[in-house]
Nucleic acid binder design. Sequence first.
RNA 1: GUGGCCGUAGCUCAGUUGGUUAGAGCGCCAGGUUGUGGCCCUGGAGGUCGGGGGUUCAAGUCCCCUCGGUCACCCCA
Length: 425
Amino acid sequence: MSAFQAPTGTRDVLAPESSRFESLVARFARLAELAGYGLVVSPMFEDVALFSRGVGEATDVVTKEMYVFEDKGGRTIALRPEGTAPVVRAFVQHRPVLPWKAWYATPCFRYERPQAGRYRQFHQLGVEALGPQDADLDVEVVALFEGLRRSLGLEGVELRVNSMGDAACLPGYRAVLASYLSDHGEELCADHRTSWSRNPLRVLDCKKQACVSVRAGAPLLRDALCDACEAHFDRFLSGLGSLGIRWTRDDFLVRGLDYYTRTTFEFRASGLDAAQDTICGGGRYNGLVEELGGPPTPGIGFAAGVERILLACAVEGVELAPERATEVFVVDVVGGGSARDLTDALRRAGVAADRAFDGRSLKSQLKQADRSGARVACIVGPEEEAAGVVTVRWMRESGAGGPGPGRQERVARGDLVEAVARWTR
RNA sequence: GUGGCCGUAGCUCAGUUGGUUAGAGCGCCAGGUUGUGGCCCUGGAGGUCGGGGGUUCAAGUCCCCUCGGUCACCCCA
């Protein structure tokens, strides 16, 4: 065990795994840009109040999971526990023209006990779209993640949707639910028996049998939605249908952050354990911008967990990155000067080239060439050096009609780059 | 924050009722082949047995503490 280790709940991602990570982000970036979203890069830390106000004072994320510290100027700072609040803050600060559509890929930090699919530093991909209240925007946002899912080839993913209502109907429902719960408070699970009044909606989300039984008889928000919310949700659902996106309505989908209104949704991966199977979660937050000091502005977005998506891909055997192997390995048993110059020339020509160092033996260098995955080795020994040529050795099958492993030919040094570019194409 | 399980080489793991100098496979390095990778053979490097304390003539092994990993709860991506 080494003297220093990555802190609890964090991890190092080395190649080749890191290329899967990179490839996922790149794929998402392409889809987001394709849909008119622009990259937003905002600070990894913010005034702690941004999160307590934005995410909700009473949420677990705020009360017990934030990395908070005081900086040398006496400011109380928090490492971002999620991506939405910072993006909305950036919007309020800069006021770009509406509609404003942004995407991001960022580390997030939450002080929790690590577990499969849960880390203290994890990574989120997300989008936020501010301005329109049009339900078609809700459809677009969901379709964006659905597009990523499809492009990855992930199959075991379920989309669950719900409407949280808005300021016109949610408070009324909350009161109705609260009065129902006050009649059944004794039947709730141990945790909620005392705490349900703080946030009655949380009970709907509880997995304990006691709460599940109670909620079975509870009044439903779907029956309390106002006409406007009802119409919005209907248009959202029919829009999903029109795009061929399958969904399941879940009356108990109550997401943990305070800012959601109307549309909420989650993508769940069946290959993961139920406790951490949400690979993407999001919804509308029509009050958040105002809450953070901006003008009343509707918004919607989602955040997707990179580690969890990667985990789901691994479970389904989905290969992400056709990892870019070295194409040409230069073996130089003379002095290394040729290796230096030839690899540089190959790289300038866009060919992935590598070499050995420290004057290793021919055998050792060829072994490294083999390990690198290169299809060809370019060998420079005393004979080649004297004749101004290189020996090209095929290390692998080269496809139909090509030379097989072990076949060699000589090429004039000056022709190498062009010849290799032709072979490796 | 609470609970279960687990820490021996870079990786995966053996290590008997406590008993000489802690092993294997894979990987790595070198040689077998003074110009040829993969397969094979031979050899080599690599370990504060997670850390600290205790019991004992003797601790990888038993006890306590601690750190770390992992899984679950809570909650979330």
